[in-house]
Design a protein around this nucleic acid. Structure first.
Lengths: 170, 170
DNA sequence: CAATTCGTTCAATCAATACTGAACAAAATA
DNA sequence: TATTTTGTTCAGTATTGATTGAACGAATTG
């Protein structure tokens, strides 16, 4: 039987990471890989990854490349070994935030560019478009600060929100 | 013929918004609706929305409810009218950011909760898990600030990043 | 050189989700 | 009361993207 079977807590952690990254629009397997690399830093061989996570070699190839592009992991060569090895990068999260920032900026640019060719918008219409663009600008600025915070290796909160307790899901 | 046919700039704007929101994990139709409401504030009747965007009544129902829950639009009643009407809400973007914030906090909590039951992680393992949790904490703080900025109706940048020019996609 | 190992690619399958359109209940109208 | 209008729900379809597994070329080994 398989149902009701409980898994060990390492698997729970890895699967949880799979779901979290999936919820953020990435492949679940990328999340599982990330979870594994956070638990044990690596290096893991290509084959080892496929075996431990029980995923196909194709998925290992695709998703390690994805995480490599994101700067979450890096490919390392090991003397006397034929396989590729991967380990958690030294600054795994910066590029993720950087991409979020870029997406917000792009969205804002797209909006402003499309708005240029619009006429027949009144005073109010222009204001609403401006506020939409500003929304994305604010998002971009927020990720920008997040990048700074990450770089500073910011362990404790240096600034508390005006409107929220330090951290709780409410 | 249909191909090569160009659409007016209003449609371009609306479609662009559809793609932007789709890229953020929401239904494309929700984005189109949002685009329409940003251009013209409303109120639009239920049927009018279906006609203008050429979408089914089912989609109007589902996606207006989604945007209503998000606080982007609000349902209004108009004297002498049977249909529901919708207009852009007064503070359309706050709840969107609030949800982003909640997701980051939840992710952090999930990680910390799963990490508790883990043993056999060395010094290094604990550090990596901590840094992962901190990553989501930083994201939560960033959205938190974004929320403040939005409320302040912040039109000009009060603080410039240490590492990036004021705003460009690079 | 033949056989194996390795990582990538790609066609096929699978899974998740969006969207439609018909069925429905409630309310308004005739 | 019968008909129409209205918004929701839901089953079915379409679409999109993730995942697999086989085919492949390159490199290694025997």
């Amino acid at each position: 039987m398989l149902f009701g079977m409980t898994q060990d807590s390492e698997t729970d952690f890895i699967e949880a990471m799979g779901l979290i990254l999936q919820g953020d629009g990435m492949p679940r397997i990328a999340g599982r890989l990330m979870g594994l690399f956070v638990l044990h830093g690596g290096p893991f061989s290509f084959t080892n990854l496929a075996d431990r996570l029980e995923i196909s070699r194709g998925s290992v190839s695709t998703n390690t490349r994805l995480l490599e592009d994101l700067g979450v992991i890096e490919r390392v060569a090991i003397k006397g070994e034929r396989q590729d090895f991967f380990r958690l990068a030294s600054d795994p999260y910066a590029e993720i935030v950087e991409r979020k920032r870029t997406r917000s900026i792009r969205a804002r640019e797209t909006i402003l560019r499309n708005a240029e060719t619009l006429d027949d918008l009144g005073q109010d219409g222009l204001k609403r478009v401006d506020e939409l663009a500003n929304f994305f600008r604010v998002l971009a600025m927020a990720t920008d600060r997040a990048l700074d915070d990450l770089r500073d290796g910011d362990g404790a909160s240096p600034r508390t929100s005006k409107t929220h307790p330090p951290l709780a899901a409410e």
